[in-house]
């Protein structure tokens, strides 16, 4: 019998704990597949965040380190500098990377740390039950913005990948999403490029992935994909925002 599909060896046998309709699972699979395809499982050290993905060390087949909230990039820096021969990545949510860990993210990018960060933006704090995130949209209702995010008192969503394009040491910055098969293919392409850039020793690579949270958005999984497409995507810069100059890329 011919095998036409098998689960990637980049993921363990542990079932995901994620909610129905949450796209963390898709993103995990893409990373697992790339770890396998790029022959990185035995070479990789992943850094898990605090947040919904805080248990992801159980899912990836490689060695993993659990970091404090917001400190994944600093932990990854410490690990990579200690073992420059290893492939080191962080998997972080929007709170981890763009709020409490913003200084770590931007500083690691400025140093051009040879690590790869996967930044999953679902515009809300999922783990703690649906509070406002640094990326929550203006007007978005969350449990700590019950009347909707008011720009005057709560400010505006932060577009982290856009900021990072201005940082010299960040050599690859992409912003992708996973609401459709086509988008998922594009996301995997961006992740592959980010990983390759680390392997080539070019500098910091960063992939932001717009993701869903039907549970805390208060919608069903299909509506969540629609919300991501119609509400989130217009608010965030998308595409390959910065690619290495030697590849003939642009720096908008």
């Amino acid at each position: 019998m011919k095998t036409i599909f098998a689960k990637t060896s980049g993921l363990t046998e542990r079932p995901f704990h994620y909610c129905p309709g949450c796209t963390h699972g898709i993103i995990h699979r893409l990373i697992g597949e790339l770890l396998e395809e790029m022959n990185l499982i035995e070479k990789a050290i992943g850094v898990a965040p605090v947040g919904c993905a805080g248990f992801c060390e159980n899912y990836f087949s490689c060695d993993m380190i659990g970091a404090a909230h917001g400190r994944a990039v600093a932990v990854a820096t410490g690990a990579k500098r200690a073992r420059p021969d290893r492939f080191v990545f962080t998997y972080q949510g929007d709170g981890d990377g763009a709020s409490i860990g913003l200084a770590e993210t931007v500083s690691a990018a400025a140093r051009g740390e040879k690590i790869s960060s996967i930044f999953v933006n679902n515009a809300i704090y999922g783990m703690t039950g649906g509070q406002m995130a640094p990326t929550s949209l203006v007007g978005q209702r969350t449990s700590t913005s019950p009347y909707g995010r008011d720009a005057v008192t709560m400010g505006f969503p932060l577009d982290l990948p856009k900021i990072l394009t201005q940082v010299e040491g960040a050599v690859y910055v992409a912003s992708v999403s996973v609401e459709s098969p086509q988008a998922i293919k594009e996301a995997k392409k961006a992740l592959r490029k980010a990983f390759q850039i680390q392997l080539d020793g070019l500098g910091y690579s960063f992939v932001s992935i717009l993701s869903t949270c039907p549970t805390n958005w208060g919608v069903d999984p299909v509506e969540a994909l629609d919300w991501l497409t119609t509400k989130m995507k217009p608010h965030f810069a998308l595409g390959e925002l910065k690619t290495p100059a030697l590849e003939g890329g642009s720096n908008p």
Binding site: I45, A67, R71, A74, V75, A76, T77, G78, R83, A103
Partner: peptide
Amino acid sequence: GTYLQAESEVAAINMVYGAGAVGERV
């Protein structure tokens, strides 16, 4: 060895955590 100036003591101690976690003396 490697010396790295961190952006803060918060980052520094977490870099220590990372290097210690991979088994190096830090």
